[in-house]
Design a protein around this nucleic acid. Sequence first.
DNA 1: GCCAAATTTAATCATTTGTTTAAATCAGAT
DNA 2: ATCTGATTTAAACAAATGATTAAATTTGGC
Lengths: 206, 206
Amino acid sequence: MQKKNIDTSTEEKIKAAARTVFYKKGFAATRTRDIAEEAGMNLALLNYYFRSKARLFELIMTETLSGFVQKIISVLNNEKTSLEKKIEQIASEYIDLIIEEPEIPTFIVSEIRNHPEAMLKRIPVKQAFLHSFFIQQYQKAVSEGKITEPNPVHFILNLLGLVVFPFIAKPMVMAGMGLTKSQFTQLMQERKKSIPLWTKAMLKAK
Amino acid sequence: MQKKNIDTSTEEKIKAAARTVFYKKGFAATRTRDIAEEAGMNLALLNYYFRSKARLFELIMTETLSGFVQKIISVLNNEKTSLEKKIEQIASEYIDLIIEEPEIPTFIVSEIRNHPEAMLKRIPVKQAFLHSFFIQQYQKAVSEGKITEPNPVHFILNLLGLVVFPFIAKPMVMAGMGLTKSQFTQLMQERKKSIPLWTKAMLKAK
DNA sequence: GCCAAATTTAATCATTTGTTTAAATCAGAT
DNA sequence: ATCTGATTTAAACAAATGATTAAATTTGGC
């Protein structure tokens, strides 16, 4: 009957190949034949295991997006860590994550622009963010005068901008500044320590 | 013979339509028929005025990219403005520019990933940046102890990250934070004043 | 008003691409 | 060993798409 788990490998190989190709080229520029070739298998298998290119893509996108968002939500909702610690954790963990999978940020922003609602309604970020423990912490710190910027949205935008933007701009940064791959990675490593310092300084700016 | 400048309008209409569609959907997802329809004209005109979809795209991309880069280069090379003033100028002018054309940042990062070399070798940023007046200013300020972060690349990444990232993440921010279009624009307006404050605080962080 | 060149149109081509089909092969239960 | 259903393959289809062609129309100088 079933070919056991060993043959989940076929399905899994296709998914892995799809991830690779979609990450690199995006949905529209990806040919189903590219995925089949990357996976080293017959074209018809894509439609045998997944119903269509679109469904395969949705699968990859949902997994990717939810993994990416989940991480920050869980940090923000940790009731045992200070604001400072949360900053350090987000900077450090996201930079490591993105160094591992450098194409994810550009993949996400590129693809979401085409179907923002469809992609985002699947992931309930709004609830999770607006009612997070972090929000309480932040507002408390504001009322205690420890933070000058009252709007936590700015804070999150700033932190994520410092962390994620360099990776999104990577090709331009490397060309514009004349950096090698390893020099770029080195720079990003430095930022794991610097971003918390910068962010904390920003919080007290006025 | 020639239909005068009035008929540059046809050529110009096609370019405008191409800009609109390419900005919104990217090269791969754009159909030449989409552009023709957007311009309200016959499909064959695209190939009559421009040789192909690819050439039309290159034209739009080069103009867009060079306009975008030019702005920062000219600010950085202004020998009459202080570092502080440069920060204020970049924040203010880029935010205004991007509010006018909100799709440009995502367009640029999405499309450059597919042909980084091809797109970037056309624009000589490296020279212009590494030898800019700004670099001298920055290094002087570092040696005078006014700035703690010695690497100007970090500084530029930070400033552009604070300015550009929110627009790139716009769909996620709006969905995740539950914002309307005008609330989002309002937030961005606030940042014209805040980013200089934040950036200056970062420069002195240690 | 007429002509030559420029512009525009409608129709068609050739290729690419997502998907389907039907046959072949394989794995494992009996 | 054989049979059944799952898996894989090769081939083909239909629609979409970038590009071209040849004919029609328009433009401006004479």
